[in-house]
């Protein structure tokens, strides 16, 4: 076993362990912190396969942005010391069985599939090239999804505003 393989299995173990912890803990802030480690592990995978840009984006957006946002909203909305209610035994058993069944089916089929190495690994993955692809409108360009995301973000912001904005109903007097 090479060092890379050992490191890979170590990372995979960390990710699985923290994923399970993050959905089983009853304290919401801890769940957010466990999620942080899951996302960091994923970033480490990207570093392992030399996708440095993607790894950096993962670190900046998910860890720097999303986890911090989650922690902020937890601090703003709920009591840190509150614990979630203990789930009912029946729900735990049924949920666990369904999740385990799904895991077995996915794992078995993934195991049996003869994956071949992708030829895409030799491509040019520099930031400059990614930037050009993002704004390219021709074959294989991504400018349309890029623009559609901007509409999605606008709509999401307006949606957040109408939920958060307190409306004083107009009174007749």
């Amino acid at each position: 076993m090479t060092f890379t393989q050992i490191f890979f299995y170590f990372l995979a173990g960390v990710i699985v362990a923290f994923s399970v912890l993050s959905v089983t803990t009853r304290r919401i802030l801890r769940a957010a912190v466990y999620l942080l480690f899951v996302l960091m592990g994923t970033a480490a995978f990207y570093f392992m396969v030399n996708f440095f840009f993607l790894a950096a984006v993962q670190l900046i957006v998910y860890i720097g942005g999303i986890v911090v946002l989650i922690i902020f909203s937890v601090l703003l909305t709920s009591q840190i010391n509150d614990r979630l209610d203990k789930p009912e035994m029946a729900k735990v058993v049924i949920g666990g069985l369904v999740a385990f069944g799904g895991l077995i089916i996915s794992a078995l089929t993934l195991w049996q599939y003869p994956f071949t190495a992708s030829s895409a690994a030799e491509g040019d993955y520099s930031v400059a090239e990614i930037g050009r692809q993002l704004l390219n409108y021709g074959e294989g360009g991504y400018v349309l999804p890029f623009e559609v995301i901007s509409i999605l973000l606008l709509a999401a912001m307006v949606g957040a505003i109408i939920i958060a904005k307190r409306i004083k109903p107009k009174t007749d007097d």
Partner: peptide
């Protein structure tokens, strides 16, 4: 894009 605005 079809779902998120409707959720709001």
């Amino acid at each position: 894009l079809t779902t998120i605005p409707v959720a709001a």
